[in-house]
Design a protein around this nucleic acid. Sequence first.
DNA 1: CATTTATTCAAACGACTGTTTGAAACAGCC
DNA 2: GGCTGTTTCAAACAGTCGTTTGAATAAATG
Lengths: 211, 211
Amino acid sequence: MAKTDTKTKILDTAERLFAQKGFDAVSLRNIIEAAKVNLAAVHYHFGSKQTLLHAVVSRRLRPVNEERLAMLAEARAKAGKRKLKLEMVLESLFVPVFRAQASHKSGGSFTRLIGRVVFDRNTELQKFMVSELAQVIIQFSRAFDEALPGLNKTEMDWRSHFMAGAMAHTLCNADLLASFTGTDAGADGYETTVQRLVDFTAAGFRAKVST
Amino acid sequence: MAKTDTKTKILDTAERLFAQKGFDAVSLRNIIEAAKVNLAAVHYHFGSKQTLLHAVVSRRLRPVNEERLAMLAEARAKAGKRKLKLEMVLESLFVPVFRAQASHKSGGSFTRLIGRVVFDRNTELQKFMVSELAQVIIQFSRAFDEALPGLNKTEMDWRSHFMAGAMAHTLCNADLLASFTGTDAGADGYETTVQRLVDFTAAGFRAKVST
DNA sequence: CATTTATTCAAACGACTGTTTGAAACAGCC
DNA sequence: GGCTGTTTCAAACAGTCGTTTGAATAAATG
């Protein structure tokens, strides 16, 4: 118990602080102070600050990505020979990450972190993210092609891009919605949020391509 | 000429570097080295690093916001007594900021910066942004209500949020699209990008609200 | 038990941070 | 010319940064 205690304390605290303030704005000393561990413990367990970030992201993102692929496979199985339904593909992409926020009582700090990571310009981190997301990207871009057989590749790429932006912004800046508009982002469960996001992005994917 | 030369050299260089690496990751010494000015000049002209960021953002964002409001007013005038058209509202929001990228040959660094700023968690910066965007938010949320009379407030807030995410992500991470999919973001002019973004978000706004 | 391995700790490393200072260099004006 | 106000400059300030070190402690193994 005591062996991994320090390790997870560091992970939990780093996750919370990175999500709150961003990677560069949080120092290792901020983390070890809040986690009440020794400074050298970070390097002993993780090697460097950058590797710590990778560990923080990976711990949460890996199960999420596995569940995404599992849900997509299930959607495929359920469709059988029929065409894959766009809404189910989108749900497979959204539900695991939004549910992780609700279930794991990290106070939503980790989804904020994942959302933020997408927008962070950190060359090391981006390489890491690409490798972590590789399978998901491959499988889901294929799924989108199947669900929207008529759409040409360029349009598909752009619309996937827009969809990713809407998703990341929602994960990362849900509190902005409250401050700007007064609407409380966490008022309903994650299911309602996902439903809204699916409605919006599905309609966007299906929009008539203007000439 | 020499009087404002240092000032604009600092602004230009800071804009480029902030957009490339983010606010925290760039030091004042990085900036003054690239701009070939003295370190103290930053504080002489701008007071602090934070105020420099405000100046960098404001210089570009202010004219963009003015043009946004002007385009919206023009769209209103053109509509006359008819209902405001959603696509024209969206264009009024997108065109100025995307055109600024193309016209001002900053290499698109400033739109990346503006996109990034939306996602940055910097309390000081967020307060500043809210004040800079206040008028735009008020006017455009009213316009969206007019263009979509049937939609209730909560749904409207969420969809505006999704739309903002798609926009910010496109401004900030256009290069990601190239690296992930191979589609070159800058292949066509900004008009095509705006058109695609309008198509996507307009359809999202108009999506049937699922029960 | 002793001995080896894993983990914690305080202290220091050199480098870098934003900011301040006070003296130079420059401008425009009488 | 001298003088005033603006702008530049090198140097230093007081911290903080990520990282390393070597000894002290805890746990595990024989």
